[in-house]
């Protein structure tokens, strides 16, 4: 599914290297978690993969099902099946949440040469999926993320993910700022989407999210590289001992 080889990335405005050769493969149907201390490059990787401005790729490749991700515009990556659940979802005043969703769904369908969803079909689908995430009609009507609580914003990201049905989902610290109940809702939403043809890359600081979303593989990222990979037990190790031992090991 997702294959990253030797990915090196600098900040565009400053002479600063963030990713220093990341190697990572997420096979179809698997859930991989990335943990790591602040500033290790986790969020940068998610932005670079989804095509945000401000970064320069100086080396390496990233492909989605064999297609070169880095050569595409952000919207082309989305249509190819990549989805990033933002750590800080953006507010868009005046644009109804439903309008936003429908515009996005149909833009992707159009880009893939598929027929657009009719208003009726779209509505049925969005209502059903919103219900699972405890998103009410009022929240669908409000402007995108404006005045949403932290939990509402994250649930809204998962609703977008459910509607867009991506192949590769990246969750950037989706658990940050969530209470236990909200985290459970989000995790249930993600688990409901797990399938053979869909992979997840879950970026998090804490083991507790991984109690709800069971990963197949856990990677530890530090200083712009993956320094260790292992099973779910690796996350528990971090939870108990912190990163210090792992970092020392790597050094």
């Amino acid at each position: 599914m997702l294959e990253i080889k030797g990915l090196k990335v600098d900040l565009e405005d400053e002479d600063k290297s963030i990713l220093k050769g990341v190697d990572l493969t997420v096979p179809a149907g698997e859930v991989h978690a990335i943990m790591g201390p602040n500033g290790s490059g986790k969020s940068t990787m998610s932005y670079v993969l989804s095509g945000k401005d401000g970064y320069t790729v100086t080396g390496g490749t990233a492909t989605l099902n064999g297609v070169d991700l880095l050569a595409m515009e952000p919207e082309e990556r989305a249509a190819a099946g990549l989805f990033l659940a933002f750590q800080y979802p953006v507010e868009i005043p005046g644009v109804g949440n439903m309008t936003f969703l429908r515009t996005a769904v149909n833009a992707q369908r159009k880009a893939r040469g598929e027929e657009e969803l009719s208003a009726g079909d779209f509505l049925k689908e969005v209502r059903a999926k919103a219900k699972d995430l405890k998103i009410d009609a009022e929240m669908l009507k409000r402007p995108v993320n404006v005045g949403f609580s932290g939990g509402e914003k994250k649930r809204n990201e998962i609703l977008q993910m459910a509607m867009l049905e991506p192949k590769m989902c990246i969750l950037d610290e989706t658990d940050s700022g969530l209470d236990v109940d909200a985290m459970k809702l989000v995790a249930d939403g993600v688990n409901a989407l797990r399938s053979e043809g869909r992979s997840f890359l879950v970026i998090t600081h804490y083991q507790r999210l991984l109690d709800h979303i069971k990963p197949d593989v856990v990677h530890i990222m530090s200083n712009g590289r993956i320094i260790k990979s292992g099973g779910p037990e690796l996350a528990l190790e971090v939870e108990h001992n912190g990163y210090t031992d792992l970092l020392a090991e790597d050094a």
């Binding site: 989804s50 095509g51 945000k52 401005d53 515009e73 952000p74 919207e75 990556r77 989305a78 249509a79 989805f83 990033l84 933002f86 979802p89 953006v90 868009i92 005043p93 005046g94 644009v95 309008t99 936003f100 515009t103 996005a104 769904v105 833009a107 992707q108 880009a111 402007p143 977008q160 867009l164």
Partner: peptide, 20 residues
């Protein structure tokens, strides 16, 4: 960027934000 990461092209994204 948020709009584009959801699949809208740049002009569609501007139109959406401005209409909002």
């Amino acid at each position: 960027f948020y709009c584009r990461s959801r699949g809208m092209d740049e002009e569609e994204a501007v139109a959406l934000v401005v209409n909002g």
